[in-house]
Design a protein around this nucleic acid. Sequence first.
DNA 1: TTAAAATAGGATAAAATTATCCGAATTAAA
DNA 2: TTTAATTCGGATAATTTTATCCTATTTTAA
Lengths: 145, 145
Amino acid sequence: MMFSKACEYGIKASIFIALSSYKGERVSLKAIAKEINSPEAFTAKILQDLVRHKIINSTKGAYGGFDVDKTSISSIKLSHIVNAIDGDSIYNGCGLGLETCDENHPCPVHDRFKLVRDELKFMLEHTNLEELALNISSGASFLKV
Amino acid sequence: MMFSKACEYGIKASIFIALSSYKGERVSLKAIAKEINSPEAFTAKILQDLVRHKIINSTKGAYGGFDVDKTSISSIKLSHIVNAIDGDSIYNGCGLGLETCDENHPCPVHDRFKLVRDELKFMLEHTNLEELALNISSGASFLKV
DNA sequence: TTAAAATAGGATAAAATTATCCGAATTAAA
DNA sequence: TTTAATTCGGATAATTTTATCCTATTTTAA
């Protein structure tokens, strides 16, 4: 509704990987896709993206898989994930698609949009993987239906 | 960034039609597309949609075009336009794409997302075509670069 | 009545996003 | 050293969104 599918999968996958990493376990693509109910091959592409952006680690070969440094889980923000996958459109894009849209040359909804976007931005920059993972393990929230 | 292209065009077109309607003029598809810098044929589809949803009126034939009842301009909210074009995904969709996501079975970002979405929803439901059109005519905002 | 100017709408095409397939490379265990 | 389990990455396909084209229909003016 606000993120691309790729981003949705990326966020959910990251949460699950964080959960496993707390337990000291690596998880395979297959396990991730199953847990978050996503298409395997497509999810692989997204994970590769996150690896390239150094948000998660991957280990090839048997007993390989994905993990994330325990110590960095609390400092990985949703904004990092969204940015790695969808780029910075959230920060720069105009609500009505104008090439340039700023205080000097605003689109009709510029100010109104700014309020909403700033709230979204704040949320993304202040929500970290740790809190999200904890809510999953406590059963307060869910990664799939 | 948050709306589809179709929605962006639909909003901009509606504002321009409102502006013309204040002057008692109908505007042609061609004039609209030029003014908002949008592809003509695609814009036509979107306008048809808005006509079907009775948000704007169309008149066929020579000297025809699009207009909107002067008296209803102030009561047409952005939410009406967005809803006509993109449906109600803004109101119902889960931020992480879960089929069902509610208080009883929330996705990991449910609460945080709700804040942002409620603000967006409020904005869409409290912004009407009149204010937007006035800001264009006063030169405070722009429909294109 | 005819011609010109419009919108309506169906059929397609192009582009972007989402999804799949498969072989290559890597790694650990047997 | 071989085999199985993995990720990586390129090619391709399916789907959705965006965009175009063309004909039909409507309307006004000449």
